[in-house]
């Protein structure tokens, strides 16, 4: 598999470590809402189809990416820096 790194172009998936569901970006405040934190830690969607995932460019520039991948076809629809996604989400709040 090849992952289109937003800074480095197409890179082999072997260079990356996959963490899974990009919902991990949205960490709730644990002191304010312990139940939300429990859901955050334990509940993940596992869709057959388009999925947003976190990948770490461990053998590369150490960027965390949000990769949009179709789990049925392995087609990769896009990738952006997780940092940009997280900042955007925080800005929207």
């Amino acid at each position: 598999m090849l992952i289109p790194h937003p800074l480095l172009g197409l890179r082999d998936a072997q260079e990356f470590t996959c963490l899974g569901d990009a919902a991990l970006l949205n960490r709730p405040d644990g002191l304010a809402d312990p139940q939300a934190l429990t859901d955050y830690v334990y509940l993940r969607d596992n869709p057959a189809g388009v999925h947003r995932e976190l990948w770490f460019h461990e053998q590369g520039d150490r960027s965390w990416l949000v990769v949009t991948r179709n789990t049925l076809t392995h087609e990769i629809l896009g990738a952006e820096l997780a940092r940009d996604v997280a900042l955007r989400a925080k800005g929207a709040k």
Binding site: L24, E58, W64, A82, R83, K90
Partner: peptide
């Protein structure tokens, strides 16, 4: 290795600000 990855996760994904 894993701890460094975890630290980068915290820095880039949880608290990029």
């Amino acid at each position: 290795g894993p701890v460094y990855r975890h630290m980068e996760f915290a820095r880039q994904c949880l608290w990029p600000e």
